[in-house]
Design a protein around this nucleic acid. Structure first.
Length: 194
DNA sequence: ATTTTCAAT
């Protein structure tokens, strides 16, 4: 029954939720991950609008086992049962770069699914434990990792936020912070492994 | 030059 199609608002983020979680100068204890999927056909890319959306982590302060956003994302990907004969480009916009463990999980997934390529844009850099090695491993597995700039924030606002027609309002210092993080990420990703 | 952050390294 086509009549049961979910309303568009179900996969849109509240304005404040977006800003509170993606603002790149403040730290949060939550992680949001917005994703888009395209089929790649030669030079052309066809968006699969029906499966775009977002997930967020489950914190240690909530009932049940904690779970990072990336693992929910991987669950979603598996639920789509993507056709191995096609090529898909997944883009995700995540409020923190993946931790070491999640980076490894994503790298493993990419290793097993050559029909999928992954582009990650992050608003902030998660810098705990072995995060640098995790990011390098993820890059080595073929993922493109970058820091969100105003272009990506605006794209997310337009695509994933219930903005009621209001334009994206960049916060003070957005660019400066983004550029700083870009530089840090480049340093990490350019460092030789071993 | 900038860290405490998907809580508890």
């Amino acid at each position: 029954m086509e009549a049961g199609t979910a309303p568009r608002s179900r996969c849109l983020l509240d304005e404040n939720t977006f800003t509170e979680n993606f603002k790149n100068q403040i730290n949060t204890r939550k992680t949001y991950l917005c994703y888009e999927v395209e089929i790649v056909d030669g030079d052309a890319r066809v968006p699969l609008d029906e499966i775009k959306g977002f997930v967020h982590n489950k914190g240690a302060n909530q009932p049940g086992e904690p779970c990072h956003a990336e693992l929910y994302f991987l669950d979603r990907i598996h639920s789509w049962t993507l056709d191995r004969r096609l090529h898909y480009r997944l883009t995700c916009f995540i409020s923190w770069t993946p931790c070491h463990t999640c980076a490894q999980e994503l790298a493993t997934f990419l290793g097993e699914n050559s029909h999928v390529s992954l582009h990650i844009f992050a608003s902030r850099m998660y810098r705990r434990f072995d995060y640098e090695a995790g990011l390098r491993r993820l890059q080595a597995a073929g993922a493109q990792i970058a820091i969100m700039t105003s272009k990506e924030f605006e794209h997310c606002w337009e695509t994933f936020v219930d903005h009621q027609g209001r334009p994206f309002q960049p916060w003070d210092g957005l660019e400066v912070e983004s550029q700083h993080l870009c530089k840090k990420l480049q340093e990490i990703l350019q460092t030789q492994q071993n």
